[in-house]
């Protein structure tokens, strides 16, 4: 297991380096730089632009910038964000926990709801299966931004059940106690997390249903039934556990998908996470921040993939042996 982990970690480092290098190169191929995007007033004198470019090392040859950047990353220094006027590490340190909170809540809800729907569909073929199948297909087909806007329109604007945007109430939050603050964040988390969870649950449900049906007619199910195992036990202990593998694979893939999908949701609900941060950074040609975000994002993907492998091994003894 230790050798497996070491090998996967080494692979992960190479993947992250390749992704960071490709991002660095592609960004610098695009026209513009952080200074031209920030100092966009035509009245800004050329010497001020030149000074800023010199200060942030943007006037150096690309190769030098790349080597300096990699050397910095090796020492935990991801560079300086010109538009944010802060170190990239500080900017990311604010955004990553927010994204993890949103993603964590959305992933948990998506898999819990999705698996429950998939199991229910597989068990109750007929009207329920068709109805839930139609509903999940409908949600899956809906664009994220549209669903987010509809959630906002219905639950925030019409029913006034949840706040429109933000991560907390900017007026009252500082004056709440610990539990009050927690409740405030949870209240603000509800709509963006539900939006992401609905989209995720629709996919999980379809995978779970198909996997459940795949194993429904296998010999071990028939044997268990012949042994007199109650139907509930058959479904949960035998059928569901063996139908977990495709869903675990999906979990590994869901991490990057959620990271990308969260961009629209973060923007619409003004959730200060990494997706929104990265898109804004691309818009302002904030090279260090984009590359830093990509490094963190690809590290999360590698971690998600590793987690999926470990869960695979836990769920399937054959994987442990191989």
């Amino acid at each position: 297991m230790a050798r497996f982990l070491a090998r996967r970690l080494a692979q992960g480092v190479v993947i992250v380096w390749l992704v960071a290098t490709a991002t660095f190169a592609l960004l610098h191929l695009a026209p513009g730089d952080p200074v031209s995007a920030s100092l966009d007033n035509p009245l800004t004198p050329p010497e001020v632009r030149a000074h800023w470019r010199h200060t942030y090392g943007l006037d150096r040859p690309l190769g030098v910038q790349y080597v300096r950047y990699l050397a910095g990353v090796a020492h935990g220094d991801f560079g300086f964000s010109v538009p944010h006027r802060e170190s990239v590490a500080a900017v990311l340190a604010e955004a990553v926990p927010n994204t993890l909170l949103l993603m964590g809540a959305a992933l948990f809800a998506a898999f819990a709801v999705g698996m429950a729907i998939g199991i229910a569909q597989a068990r109750r073929r007929g009207a329920l299966d068709r109805g839930l199948g139609f509903a999940t297909l409908l949600v899956y087909s809906v664009p994220e931004f549209w669903l987010a806007l509809m959630m906002m329109l219905v639950f925030a604007y019409r029913l006034r059940l949840f706040p429109v945007t933000g991560m907390f109430d900017p007026v009252m939050h500082p004056y709440f106690g610990f539990w009050g603050r927690l409740r405030d964040v949870g209240w603000h988390l509800a709509l963006p997390a539900t939006t992401l969870a609905l989209l995720g649950a629709a996919v999980v449900a379809r995978f779970q249903r198909a996997a459940m049906l795949d194993v429904a007619h296998q010999d071990f199910i028939r044997t268990a039934r012949a042994k007199g195992v109650p139907e509930r036990g058959i479904v949960l202990r035998h059928q569901w556990r063996n139908a977990l593998l495709p869903v675990i694979t999906l979990l590994g893939l869901a991490l990057p998908a959620l990271l990308g999908g969260a961009v629209f949701v973060e923007k619409i609900f003004a959730w200060p996470g990494m997706g929104l941060l990265t898109v804004d950074a691309i818009g302002t040609r904030d090279y260090p921040l984009v590359t830093g975000s990509v490094i963190v994002g690809s590290a999360l993907v590698v971690a998600g993939s590793l987690l999926a492998d470990l869960l695979y091994a836990a769920a399937d003894p054959r994987m442990r042996e191989s």
Partner: peptide
């Protein structure tokens, strides 16, 4: 209070 999406920004005032 920061709301980058213009639709969300105006909705916040309406609510």
């Amino acid at each position: 209070s920061i709301a980058p999406d213009p639709n969300a920004a105006i909705t916040r005032v309406m609510t």
